[in-house]
Computed example of a mutant assay.
Amino acid sequence: MPDLIKIAPVQMGGIVRTIPMVTRMQLIPVLFERLDDALDKASVFFAGPQTALYRIDGDEMEVRIGVPLFQPVDGFEMFDAPCGNALCQRVLGPLDGLPGVYRSLSEEISARGLTRGVWAREVYRFIAKDASLNVTDVSIDVTDALH
């Protein structure tokens, strides 16, 4: 069952792009590859957790993919991952079921009488070559205050 959580703001660095909704499934993996290349070029051994934020505006989607950064690093755009309240579900294993997770979260927002916010986000807590070991927190922001 999804949890209602408070998300703290985080200053991040990475890639910010607006892409057509219809090509998102092809373009989003390319953005992650670009982030990995930028980390490698910056000689960053570890940065995490990687976070992806998604905001839909009509036929386009703003995508922010990055890692926590406290100062600018060459090759990274600085951006804020905003604070907020969100309905969150932890996903264990492969990420191919994400569309169903988003549907489930959207249905749960309605069932609880909450109001959907602007951002959806994925925080990759642990990603492995063996996808059965993955741990990802998927959330959709809500505008309602936590009690």
Rank of each mutant, 00 (worst) to 15 (best):
S110W: 03
Q50F: 07
P49S: 09
S104T: 14
A86I: 14
S110C: 11
D74R: 03
R55A: 10
V73R: 00
Q89P: 04
I109L: 14
P94H: 07
F46W: 11
V118K: 10
V91Q: 09
F79E: 00
S43K: 13
R125W: 09
S139R: 04
T136Y: 05
S110A: 13
I56L: 14
V63I: 12
E108C: 10
S106M: 03
Q50P: 06
P68M: 02
Y124R: 07
D40E: 15
F46L: 12
P68V: 12
V123W: 02
I127K: 11
S43P: 04
R112E: 02
P99D: 01
V123I: 15
G100N: 10
L53H: 02
T51G: 06
V67E: 01
L87M: 04
I140M: 14
L114G: 05
I140C: 10
V135Y: 06
L87P: 13
E62N: 03
T136A: 03
C83D: 09
F46V: 06
F126S: 03
I109A: 13
I56G: 06
E108Q: 13
G48M: 01
A52D: 07
V135A: 11
D74I: 03
A86V: 14
S139H: 04
L69I: 11
F46D: 13
G97V: 05
V118L: 10
Q50Y: 06
E62M: 07
